[in-house]
Design a protein around this nucleic acid. Structure first.
Lengths: 144, 144
DNA sequence: CTGTCTGCAAACCATTTGCAATCGT
DNA sequence: ACGATTGCAAATGGTTTGCAGACAG
């Protein structure tokens, strides 16, 4: 998980301009374990910085992913969610409410997985492990 | 991997009508390891059955997923791809050309993964393991 | 100052939807 | 015959784009 101050100085070092919009998105994502959508990030960012457009949120998210500060998750409903935790871990994805929960993996299993990285591909940049099902909260509600 | 004839009889047993469109989509997906998009499936299906609309392809795919004959994969570019191989296996996803390649996992690792299925969620219906990177073919081409 | 970054609003495009006509059973 | 299924064409909605103005360095 990045630290806001050091993330800012790293971005500055790479030549990026430090705009209030970028800082606000960084602050929203910092320590965020909710796997928010772009729209949710936009809503929260506007509370810190009223003049932020959704287009800018997408711009900043794309930049943060490119620079390795966040990872992007595709959900079954076709939307994307953003995760500042870039360590190898798994997700449980609720197919009803589309929320995502973190699932910790053991060191052993993580290393075991890397063993299967296909060698004929140049480089594996990311690994995604997802369990799909219905979360506890949705399971308790009637199945309409 | 389903067999076309037994898939048809299973669907018939469940009360589904056996339309030429459904048979054609089943035939396109049978033994298909290309992880095609809906549009690719539509194109190939039309070669077997000229009167198939893209809406019907989506209908049939949704039904086949619901009945457990195929699994749906989300790609980084936001489109969906369809896989008739419902056994637990991993994928290598090329972030440049968006093609998907199968990666076999050992029995041991598969079982190890199941160990991490979160117990406080009612039921895990599917597990997805994906490696992201650049495939050999794309890596050989110049990086524009 | 200068070129990057932003906000706006339109464009994009995979997927979904509504409905009348068709066709499997 | 009857209701499930289809094709059509429009709608949907998350994401992207083009561009003029704003602003960080």
């Amino acid at each position: 998980m990045f630290d806001v101050k050091s993330a800012i100085s790293m971005l500055k070092g790479k030549g990026y301009r430090i705009t209030p919009q970028r800082v606000a998105v960084l602050r929203v994502l910092h320590n965020n374990t909710e796997h928010p959508t772009a729209e949710e990030i936009h809503r929260k960012t506007m509370k810190l910085q009223s003049n932020v457009s959704i287009a800018t949120v997408y711009n900043v998210l794309e930049m943060l992913e490119k620079e390795g500060f966040i990872v992007v998750l595709q959900t079954p409903d076709g939307t994307r969610r953003y995760d500042p935790n870039t360590e190898l871990h798994a997700h449980f994805v609720c197919e009803r409410c589309n929320r995502i929960f973190d699932v910790e993996l053991s060191q052993n299993l993580s290393k075991g997985l890397l063993f299967f990285v296909p060698e004929d591909s140049s480089e594996v940049k990311q690994i995604n492990i997802s369990f799909f099902g219905i979360c506890k909260r949705c399971a308790q509600q009637q199945t309409s």
